[in-house]
Write a protein that binds this DNA or RNA. Structure first.
Lengths: 228, 228
DNA sequence: TCCCTTACTGGCCGTTCGGTCAATAAGGGA
DNA sequence: TCCCTTATTGACCGAACGGCCAGTAAGGGA
């Protein structure tokens, strides 16, 4: 068969010979390239050849690192993107000193901040939404590692406020509350990804209204509002 | 060139000769087929041949009706799916008699109801999210015809309640409020599309918590809550 | 210094898919 | 009845893409 491989040295001078790296060094390069490519073109639109090219690597190598092919690579890229942000939020809750109202405010504020600051990675969140139903494994991952964790963090914040008496006690009886509290922040991020910074709803305004609404709704009922 | 076309009559008997329909009749058939295909496979995954097959039509005909090709067809399919629901909501607001609290409750309730009842069409909403940034025209459409309209409906509901004194007057000064009120319902739908009915957050519970939270947050401040 | 493991290469294959086009027939108007 | 407009067909094209694999070199251990 036609002798493959090895043109390698291009251009003016032996610019670089074949680069051999330890997997621990090569892997992040490939992952970063994959994040870029997937973020820009979506799952189906992304090309393995393009990922390889961004990583400065031959296409075949991708199948060396990700035997599962494209799907495998996609999952890995998504995984590494979401976890750190949830870790930060969990740390914030765990170590907080001070009024619980302030804690909740800070939690929501950093949530909005994280989504405003790194568009590239946030696009991956949008990608999860887009592709979840075609990747059972990805839906599992999201359900278990993202939504459940985020929910639990919010729930912990609410419970903490209830214990100090800052939030109304019967909030625990509303199983849907945590998701309702969570949703605007995520949706704000999604709108931003869809429409761009200019046409999307203003994240700052949403954040303020969001905090205000949540705190009002959680305030202990000094006078009973006719609840029905 | 090899004489194309015309095998047509298949199987046992002249099952059907070439069907010629008025565009006004053919168009909805194609649109319905496209909605199905796009909903099931996503934009990139959908095939023009598959759409044609679902519509009982040859692939070439699609390009007769949608000269812009796949993108054109996609936009048209999405268009016809979203408008009716917003119309219903607008009608609800316009014609409502009774307390504004009840009106808002009904608005939110029908919102959740619509999203629970027709999974197929709702998937298209998820598709808008997924594809908006690769279709400027689609993002325009969403921004103008969906988000803006929905926002306006919620805003009208809030204003109505403020006028009667049922809602606190200073809610109008919170530009982000409408989006925050809107977001949980949309997000609930998205979660449902992503994760399936079983793993997604319970829509009924979200609806109740959502209504309760919004009404609490909109209640006129009998006693001032320290707002900061 | 040698040698063996393995990171790495890139051409090739089969397939899929969007889009085109020349040919064809349906059916309404003259 | 004829004819002309146009709805309809399906074979065909070329490009893109995912995946494979036979072959190549880097570099650490013996």
């Amino acid at each position: 068969m036609g002798k493959p491989g090895q043109v390698a040295v291009v251009g003016a001078e032996g610019r670089q010979r074949r680069q051999r790296l330890a997997p621990a060094e090569r892997m992040p390069l490939i992952l970063a390239a994959a994040i870029e490519e997937f973020a820009e073109r979506g799952y189906a639109g992304a090309g393995m050849a393009a990922v390889a090219s961004r990583a400065g690597v031959a296409k075949g190598l991708l199948y060396h690192y990700f035997p599962g092919g494209k799907a495998d690579l996609f999952m890995a890229a998504v995984r590494g993107c979401v976890a750190p942000k949830l870790d930060e939020a969990a740390r914030l809750i765990a170590g907080f000193q001070g009024p619980r109202r302030e804690m909740l405010r800070r939690l929501i504020t950093t949530g909005y901040a994280r989504m405003a600051e790194n568009p590239r990675e946030q696009v991956l969140c949008k990608l999860i939404i887009a592709e979840a139903d075609r990747f059972p494994e990805l839906a599992d991952f999201y359900s278990r590692e993202v939504l459940a964790r985020a929910t639990e963090i919010v729930r912990a914040a609410l419970r903490a406020g209830i214990e100090t008496g800052e939030f109304r006690a019967d909030a625990v009886d509303q199983p849907g509350l945590v998701h309702v509290v969570l949703a605007p922040a995520i949706m704000g991020s999604v709108w931003r990804m869809m429409l761009g910074e200019d046409r999307a709803p203003d994240l700052g305004a949403m954040r303020e209204a969001h905090i205000d609404m949540v705190l009002r709704a959680l305030a202990p009922a000094a006078q009973n509002m006719k609840n029905n």
